[in-house]
Amino acid sequence: MPHAFLEVQLRYRYITIKLLLLTLFSSVSFIQAKAQDDLLDMLEQQDTTSQTQRVLATFKGTRIINGHSVELRTPSVLDFIISHRFGRLNSGAYEFFGLDEANVRLGLEYGLFNKVNIGIGRNSFEKTYDGFLKYKIIAQTQVVPVSVVLFSSVAINTLKSPDPERELDFSNRLSYTYQALIARKFNANFSLQLTPTIVHRNLVPTTRQANDIYAIGIGGRQKLTRRMSINAEYYYRLNPDPEPYHDSFAIGFDFETGGHVFQLHFSNSRSMIEKGFIAETNGDIYNGDIHFGFNISRTFDLRADKNKK
């Protein structure tokens, strides 16, 4: 009996010593880790850089789909954008569901200054040339809730006059677009843009059409993976023409691979300039008048000292 008691007592003492050593040992390493964490915490507290840092990449490209996004190219970067809009999907197998009938816009955009981009383009639809200027006035940060970019463009329709006897004046071929692009990147994946717009047409075919069309665009993107997002865009006209024009709607995907952005989309608009798709979209989405299209953007750095060997 006493022998067994002694054994229990010894065993108890053995456990106690083991515990003592274990806790002592762990508290030493705990102090060590804690001291290192303290150092790191101290560094974090000093850091104030994140407050004023501009939000990056609200959208992947300089277009949401048809319309411009708040994204600008940085100085000396040239962006070459090739866009296609095909014919209507509901045009049937004879037209290969619209693919036989392509219209193209070739565009160049350039980062002139830190906050200013300029661009030119030529759209085969209505043989239109366009030039634009984008100016970033507000950049979103932790403190500032939105980015704001002012956009202004002029487009020249160079189609031959339908009446060979009466040539159109140059000024009658012009139209202008003014937009405020207001966007917020809500988180790494979701961004939304509101785009109040005025389109001014120097000449309209009938007196029943207003020269100025007011519209509000709403567009957004949701990233699906790090390199792919789904985008959508809608322009609501406040004073639509009585002609059978419709509000522009588009939905598509962005794919980004290094220096390229591929955008594939479906839209009821054919034109790729603001006056065309905002004021004069003639596809009726409920009728299936939908065009497949894409934008391909390739950027080039034009500075002399590039990173290339």
Partner: peptide
Amino acid sequence: SGNIAFSIPIR
């Protein structure tokens, strides 16, 4: 103690 810590902002 020789303890050292670094914090590097990626941005």
